[in-house]
Amino acid sequence: MYSWIWRHLPGNGWVKALISLVLIIAVVYILFQYVFPWAEPLLPFNDVTVDNQ
């Protein structure tokens, strides 16, 4: 999977490494900004009220 992505990135080795880094940062950003805030309330740490009022 990752080797397939690597092969399909344009440019030489340095350009590929740079693009990979940008991609990784973008994925982490999306996870922290959108995916984790959505998933976090599914965990029990939010239940601090009686009868979920």
Binding site: V28, L31, F32, F36, E40
Partner: peptide, 14 residues
Amino acid sequence: TVIVLFVVYVLFWT
């Protein structure tokens, strides 16, 4: 890796 990142998010980033 995603699970480890999620733990970091819950314990530290929030």
